[in-house]
């Protein structure tokens, strides 16, 4: 479980997040929604330690994360799949996966096989360089790379960005399955509110750094005001 309390983050004089509080429960998907510039990516970057907050706290179970280094947060089992997918194009598919498995001190061969079983397309392309993959394949690769270390928390930044609706639906289904089977805490940042709300248990809506809604996903999905003003969904 991730608990965010009173989080304020600033870039110079500009505040990207103001007094943000919410909880992301274990075995549940928490969607963070909002328009461009609402502070969604900043939120994930602050959780994984790439950005230091001005005030507030972030705890994972009982551990305070805000004073920790990115590397140590990652080693605790908090996996962040960054926006734009972040696969290393010069590496082969297998090298990308090996890099993900490094810190987990697992049997590398076995965990690689597990991922190839889960995502057969990666097994077929294991010797190819990642920059030869399609957008959807790269998204799958970066998720597999995050999952290979058996994380307890998965932070997903815009997994549907730039993908065809069909592939988006597949990826969302995969996320849903993972969450149900692996005791995973998922924080899913999305601009594509409808597809995220379809699988999310809980939803937080951000608007220019402020929390404007924090409720069960179905409630958020039915709130006409939220839909119209913050989520860009026309009924």
């Amino acid at each position: 479980m991730i608990r965010v309390q009173g989080l304020t983050v600033a870039y110079g004089a500009v505040k990207a997040l103001v007094d943000v509080s919410f909880e992301a429960r274990t075995s549940a998907i928490t969607a963070v929604l909002g328009a461009n510039g609402a502070g969604k990516t900043t939120l994930l970057r602050t959780i994984s330690g790439l950005k230091t907050p001005v005030a507030g706290s972030i705890t994972h179970d009982e551990t305070e994360l805000t004073a920790m280094k990115t590397e140590d947060i990652a080693r605790m089992g908090i996996a962040h799949v960054p926006e734009g997918r972040g696969v290393i194009g010069e590496f082969t598919v297998e090298e990308n996966l090996r890099l993900g498995a490094l810190t987990a001190k697992l049997n590398a061969k076995q965990s690689l096989e597990n991922q190839y079983e889960r995502f057969p397309i990666l097994g077929e392309r294991r010797r190819q360089h990642a920059d030869q993959l399609s957008g959807g394949e790269r998204q799958i690769l970066s998720m597999a790379r995050a999952l290979i270390a058996n994380p307890s928390v998965l932070l997903l930044d815009e997994p549907s960005l730039g993908l065809a609706p069909l592939i988006t639906a597949q990826i969302m289904a995969t996320i849903k399955d993972l969450c149900a089977s692996d005791d995973l805490t998922v924080i899913l940042v999305e601009q594509n509110a409808s597809s995220a709300l379809r699988i999310a248990d809980h939803a937080v809506v951000l608007n220019v750094g402020h929390v404007v809604a924090n409720d069960v996903a179905s409630v958020v999905a039915e709130d006409e005001n939220l839909r119209q003003y913050y989520l860009g969904m026309v009924s």
């Binding site: 972040g86 290393i88 010069e90 590496f91 090996r98 890099l99 810190t103």
Partner: peptide, 22 residues
């Protein structure tokens, strides 16, 4: 594996840190 981390740090430092590479 050390070489993998050395190369990854050079190519993509931020992604490497997110994967726990020091």
């Amino acid at each position: 594996n050390l070489g993998l981390q050395l190369r990854a740090s050079a190519l993509a430092p931020e992604v490497s840190r997110l994967l726990g590479v020091r």
